[in-house]
Design a protein around this nucleic acid. Structure first.
Length: 879
RNA sequence: GGGCGGUUAGCUCAGUUGGUAGAGCAGUUGGCUUACAUUCAACAGGCCGUAGGUUCGAGCCCUGCACCGCCCACCA
């Protein structure tokens, strides 16, 4: 067979990708004879394209899934995409903004049409990209979070929770994104440390305007909505002032001094301005003291008419203006630098505003309780285990979940309001659009405008994708799923909520293992993102290096967080190429129609040479370790083992030792068998190249996908021979060392003598043929230690108890010595020159710094080299 | 404020029952040996952050400290 000396990744990826898909090799069915293994994909958002995080996440899943499939389990990897409410709506809004339009210009219906069009296009794109990566999902089952059935499940789950009184609607301070113009959950507000300022203001007393109370804030504009000042009830400084009236500057509103335990007397002045409509703590204080709630802001964060003369200003403009105005009034006490954490929208990074509004919430405490239990009882385990604590800590302090979003793209909240019935009795929650109000039979019902949080659908993913609850057969067989792969950022958003939903709705845990992998960063440690311009595009890497190279290299680096630069992908590409070329060597030498598997089965140990026994033993040792590593989710370790075995043992030593025996049938059979078994072992990691190569082996049929994982044969593991071969390798390295020292070319035949203990004579004799061949030894003599006679002028290398030496003649040594002495003198002279230059520079102080630096470096280098040469000369003299 | 992770060769990192420090890349030297220059051979390079402790023995276990990074929290 004639094969190119470079592995062509593009060609075979296209070929095998198509082959797998056309033959539905990843398709799964309920099969009572087989044990099921299920993984659900973390559904990528339909916002755009595959990034490195996806590549890592899906490679990890694919390795395990392909491994389990080969182990004979009925392995379902559920594929799909997420509608990603806010994120997708944002990108489509940007798209129509280019036409100069807003979503309101299109209207809800038209806008949603655009979104569905987007979904059609980008949903397919991302699936296509997952396929290019080699992901072996059951594509026949591909789901989308807004599929009809899936949406029904979302609705029914909402209704269920509502009926259990676990969903409620209420006025609360929520995180509001003024740009997306929607409420966010606490998790969707990312807190970042920001250098801000703490502004101290003076609020004068009504009855004595000369006196005042100092309060502090990081958001001056909110003072326009203040309705009280709070102090700690036991604070001596303020005790007698409680109940007094202050005049709120700029607004000239009378506000009372109230006492509340919340206030920390040690912070600032010990007095707090209270803005119940714009701060969660103040909101609570406001409720406790029955204060007025003044909302001073429009949804887009411009101030409203309640803000007096500041109305219409953006919040940050108003911030400056309020400070200026207070300064003019003499009410500004001081401004301090202040480091504090500020919430940002996780989708558009705008500073979120604590905002009072009416939203839907899920009561989380009752859901969290069993979800804490299952993790504490180790029904669900995190890998690495340290994430358990992170999970538990969050769950134990969980707060209610704001699930309504003021956007259009998503699952519409299944709530209708009757305009006739009174305010608190007008809510109708139903699975289907109700025809009339059950109380007053009015037919003019109005549906809630809002949609549900994206994660309110994602949390059902492990079972809703199986057509729960209708498809009992699939659910019973494939659910609970086996393991979930995700990044740590997603634990709260998704993992925790899936556990709660699984327990609440199916009564079962959704998965038993959670594998948390690292984040992909650039080589400087920054998160990869399009906006930073440091993102490496997986598709570009696939194009340039190949999908297997991408996969292999990513996993190689996946111990913790990954710091990736482009050149890291060479290791995978080179390895794929190495496998390819090893195969070329073998195929060149074996007949096309050889039934090597059958012949291998018939081989007896006595038919085999030592190298063959060794490589077979090494294969099975590696296989055992690789299987164990995969089962324990130690994927990078598994790859290292494979790499060392295939390149370091099979190619570097076995094939080198066997090259000239490849005409012999036994060698052919062993070489081919180990290759074929190795391909199977490597297939989960590098599916394309292994398929391509396997297909070229004699007698090969079909695909590796459904072949079985190599059988571990412990009796073929021979520790003894592995140790012996290790020793032999060390000896060969030592001999090569000698040649290097003596300047003898690698290919030049040499004579060598070994001086060994008596019991090692047999070892040397046994291995002498291969030793002579690999180390290019012409004449090999062996003496025992008691009668050894090493000539005085020999080069000696010691390997354990074995000494090897080559005699050398006096002239050679003399010549070499002279050469080195000349070098030594030259370097010494050079050093003197550099030193002189440096001294001169110091003295005159006019040499530019780089020159001095360079000379210093040169001096260091020279000194090191001189040291080295001196040592060499000493060695010559001691002989 | 609480919690977690890291600190090992110039760079990126392995190092799971505590037993004489490893890989890849970069570097130096030498090889076009018809499988592979996406290669082969050889070399060099580490008080394993710091101070103590446990132990016959610590990169690994315990304690303190320093620096870096991450997460959580109602830090007006």
């Amino acid at each position: 067979m004639d094969l190119s000396n470079r592995y062509n990744s593009k060609e075979s990826e296209e070929k095998w990708g198509r082959f797998w898909e056309e033959n539905h090799l990843f398709h799964t069915e309920v099969n009572p004879d087989k044990e099921p293994f299920t993984v659900v994909i973390p559904p990528p958002n339909i916002t755009g394209i595959l990034h490195m995080g996806h590549a890592l996440n899906n490679t990890l899943q694919d390795i395990l899934v392909r491994y389990k499939r080969m182990k004979g389990l009925e392995t379902l990897w559920m594929a799909g995409t997420d509608h990603a409410g806010i994120a997708t709506q944002n990108v489509v809004e940007k798209q129509i903004a280019r036409e100069g339009k807003k979503r309101q210009d299109l209207g809800r219906e038209e806008f949603l049409k655009r979104l569905w069009a987007w979904q059609k296009q980008y949903g397919d794109t991302i699936i296509h990209q997952l396929k290019k990566l080699g992901s072996s999902c059951d594509w026949d089952r591909t789901r989308f979070t807004m599929d009809e059935h899936y949406s029904q499940v979302v609705t029914s789950v909402f209704v269920q929770l509502y009926e259990k009184k676990m969903i409620y609607r209420g006025q609360h301070i929520i995180n509001w994104c003024p740009r997306c113009q929607t409420a966010l959950s606490d998790e969707e507000a990312e807190h970042k440390e920001v250098k801000g300022a703490l502004y101290h203001f003076r609020y004068p007393f009504k009855d004595d305007p000369a006196k005042y109370v100092t309060v502090a804030t990081t958001r001056p504009e909110t003072m326009l909505g203040d309705t009280a000042v709070a102090v700690h009830p036991k604070d001596k400084r303020y005790k007698k002032l409680i109940g007094k009236i202050l005049i709120l500057p700029l607004m000239n509103r009378e506000i009372k001094i109230i006492a509340d335990e919340y206030v920390d007397p040690k912070f600032g002045s010990g007095a707090v301005k209270v803005t119940p409509a714009h701060d969660p703590n103040d909101f609570e204080i406001g409720k406790r003291h029955d204060l007025e709630f003044i909302n001073i802001m429009h949804p887009d964060a411009r101030l409203n008419e309640k803000a007096g003369r500041f109305a219409g200003m953006d919040r940050f403009t108003a911030r400056k203006e309020v400070v200026n105005a207070l300064k003019e009034l003499g009410a500004l006490d001081r401004i301090e630098d202040h480091l504090h954490s500020v919430g940002h929208c996780y989708r558009c990074h705008t500073v979120v505003e604590p905002y009072l509004s009416k939203q839907w919430f899920v009561k989380m405490k009752p859901l969290a309780k069993p979800a804490i239990e299952v993790v504490k009882k180790k029904k669900i385990k995190f890998y690495p285990a340290r994430w358990t604590k992170v999970y538990l800590n969050w769950m134990e302090n969980i707060r209610d979940w704001c699930i309504s979003r003021q956007i259009w793209w998503g699952h519409r909240i299944p709530v209708w309001y009757c305009p006739v019935c009174p305010e608190d009795k007008n809510v109708i929650v139903a699975n289907m659009t109700p025809q009339e109000c059950p109380r007053c039979h009015s037919k003019k019902l109005i549906q809630d405008e809002d949609v549900l949080d994206t994660w309110f659908s994602s949390w059902l993913w492990p079972f809703a994708t199986l057509y729960w609850p209708q498809n009992k057969k699939d659910v019973e067989y494939f659910y609970p799923t086996s393991v979930l792969f995700t990044a740590s950022e997603i634990i709260f958003f998704w993992v925790a909520r899936m556990i709660m939903a699984g327990l609440e709705f199916t009564g079962k845990i959704p998965f038993s293992d959670v594998y948390i992998h690292g984040t992909v960063r650039d080589d400087k440690g920054q998160k990869m993102s399009k906006s930073l311009g440091n993102a490496l595009d997986p598709l570009e890497i696939i194009n340039e290096y190949g999908a297997d190279a991408l996969r292999f290299s990513l996993i190689m680096n996946s111990g913790q967080d990954l710091f990736i630069s482009k050149d890291k992908f060479e290791i995978g590409r080179n390895f794929a190429n190495k496998i390819w070329n090893a195969t070329r060597l073998i195929l060149k030498n074996v007949p096309d129609n050889m039934d090597f598997q059958k012949q291998f089965a018939k081989l007896k140990p006595k038919d085999l040479d030592r190298e063959s026994c060794w490589i077979i033993s090494r294969f099975h040792s590696t296989l055992a370790a690789v299987s164990r590593a995969i089962e324990q989710y130690r994927f990078s370790e598994a790859e290292t083992l494979i790499y060392e075995f295939f390149w370091g043992n099979y190619c570097d030593w076995y094939l080198e030792m066997s090259k000239d025996k490849l005409a012999q049938e036994t060698t052919q059979v062993v070489a081919l068998s180990v290759l074929e078994q190795s391909l199977k072992m490597m297939h989960p990691f590098m599916p394309f190249v292994t398929e391509e190569i396997a297909s070229k082996l004699p007698g090969h049929q079909g695909s590796l996908v459904r072949q079985s994982w190599p059988n571990l044969k412990k009796r073929l593991i021979d520790r003894e021979i592995e140790t012996q071969m290790q020793r032999l390798i060390e000896i060969i390295v030592a001999v090569r060392n000698l040649r290097k020292e003596l300047n003898i070319a690698l290919m030049e035949q040499i004579d060598i003598t070994f001086s060994v203990d008596k019991e090692d004579i047999a070892f040397i004799e046994d291995y002498s043929p291969v030793l002579k061949k690999i180390a290019k030894i012409n004449h090999l003599s062996c003496t025992t230690k008691d009668q050894e006679s090493i000539p005085p002028l020999a080069k000696i290398a010691v390997v354990g108890t074995i000494k090897c030496f080559i005699p050398v003649c006096v002239e050679d040594i003399q010549k070499e010595k002279e050469k080195i002495e000349i070098q030594y003198q030259q370097k010494l002279a050079a050093l003197e020159r550099v030193k002189a230059r440096l001294q001169n520079a110091d003295f005159l102080q006019k040499a530019p710094a780089p020159v001095v630096e360079k000379d210093k470096l040169t001096q260091e280098t020279l000194e090191r080299e001189i040291e080295e040469l001196k040592r060499t000369i000493d060695r010559f003299s001691s002989r």
